[in-house]
């Protein structure tokens, strides 16, 4: 497993060169935006169960066959497995976002995930859709683009310093896209 710092070290070692110049500049950016990154991770972890259950609910609403007899979220046991998998995927994305590198997500979550889903008969299209909803929800929490009108009575705003989080939103989005790409 690597983070942003060890990633630059490993690639510098391949060239037998010290880490300097532009590599250090990107690490300084990581350090400078460190608090933003921690807030972003916190935004995901604090709202994890909400993000996961909304995503699974949304996936089922769009395809109600999933909870009818013979569907892949029927009975409760399989619905529970679906919620659990959503939480596991979100957890590894939060690790990747904290580390600033996708290797933990790749090594420990995505490697072999598609093959497992195919072997178990899990519809990968639905799984990808649930991840896409998690992406929308998580990035809205990180960028604080949610509004009371959209959120309704479940609207929630994190008490963080206002600032430009577009880079982190894009980075988090790329991890969700990585999961979608890996299962579909």
């Amino acid at each position: 497993m690597l983070d942003a710092f060890s990633r630059s070290v490993v690639s510098a070692d391949a060239k037998t060169a010290p880490v300097g110049g532009s590599d250090l500049a990107s690490l300084r950016a990581y350090v400078q935006n460190g608090n933003k990154r921690l807030d972003a991770v916190n935004a995901i972890t604090s709202n994890a169960s909400c993000i996961v259950s909304d995503a699974v609910t949304g996936m089922i609403c769009e395809n109600t066959g999933l909870i009818q007899a013979g569907g892949n979220c029927y009975p409760n046991r399989r619905m529970a497995a679906c919620l659990r998998d959503g939480e596991i995927i979100l957890r590894y994305i939060s690790y990747a976002l904290l580390a600033g590198d996708a290797s933990v997500l790749d090594d420990r979550c995505l490697n072999g995930l598609k093959e497992t889903y195919i072997a178990l008969g899990v519809p990968t299209q639905s799984a990808a859709r649930a991840v896409a909803i998690m992406k929308a929800s998580a990035t809205a929490h990180i960028g604080e683009t949610n509004t009371p009108a959209l959120g309704g009575k479940r609207f929630r705003k994190m008490e963080t310093t206002q600032g430009d989080c577009s880079a982190l939103v894009a980075e988090a989005g790329s991890y969700f896209d990585r999961v979608i790409g890996a299962v579909s």
Partner: peptide, 23 residues
């Protein structure tokens, strides 16, 4: 490669939990 972040993530993963405030 061991660093503070990877140590924290490894511990959280072993416990199967999200990164906590302590992390």
């Amino acid at each position: 490669m061991k660093s503070v972040v990877t140590t924290v993530v490894t511990a959280a993963d072993a416990a199967g939990r999200f990164p906590s405030q302590n992390d």
